[in-house]
């Protein structure tokens, strides 16, 4: 019995890891990004495909939530109209800190081809954006890459303090 006991000190199998609070917290945050469902147009279809079985967002820990109070990531997928602008701001304000925003696709980035009276020319005019994802529409692989980039960004941030105020464009 005793001869099978693992000698942790000797074999390098010490079950203790030394790290910082930042790294632990950010490890947790970056691997459990719960996203708010925000499909506004055709990019929303690609976002749904990313969440479904073939591309499987769950393995990143990204689970879509239908409530802003349970979400920390807003993937703005599609054209933002001026009529809708106040609602997106309200939902963004309802999300709990810390929160991040991915602007998905050309329409969300800059208004895209809709340079008209009814379209907001980029969601960064209404809410601060962390990551711009180009494409029309971006494929699910691209959205996965964006989430991975966002994970890298989260890991670089300091976990102990409140988020720095972000700049509106």
């Amino acid at each position: 019995m005793a001869q099978h006991q693992v000698n942790y000190l000797k074999d390098g199998g010490l079950p203790v890891a030394l790290t910082t609070i930042d790294k632990v917290v950010n490890w947790g945050r970056s691997n459990s990004i719960w996203a708010l469902t925000y499909g506004l147009a055709c990019c929303g279809i690609e976002m749904m495909a990313s969440g479904a079985s073939r591309y499987d967002f769950d393995r990143f820990g990204t689970i879509f939530r239908a409530s802003p109070r349970q979400a920390e990531l807003m993937v703005v997928a599609g054209t933002l109209t001026k009529k809708h602008a106040e609602f997106i701001r309200r939902l963004y304000d309802q999300m709990t800190e810390p929160k991040w925003v991915i602007s998905m696709g050309s329409c969300a980035n800059t208004g895209g081809m809709f340079n008209t009276y009814a379209t907001v020319q980029g969601v960064d005019r209404v809410i601060p954006v962390d990551l711009y994802l180009p494409g029309c529409a971006p494929r699910p692989e691209t959205l996965q890459y964006a989430v991975m980039m966002l994970q890298q960004k989260i890991r670089k941030e300091s976990a102990s303090r409140a988020q720095k105020p972000k700049r509106l464009m």
Binding site: A85, T116, Y117, A118, V120, V126
Partner: peptide
């Protein structure tokens, strides 16, 4: 591209 009201609406 909208008038001034439309430009500043949001």
């Amino acid at each position: 591209q909208g008038d001034e009201f439309a430009a500043w609406y949001e």
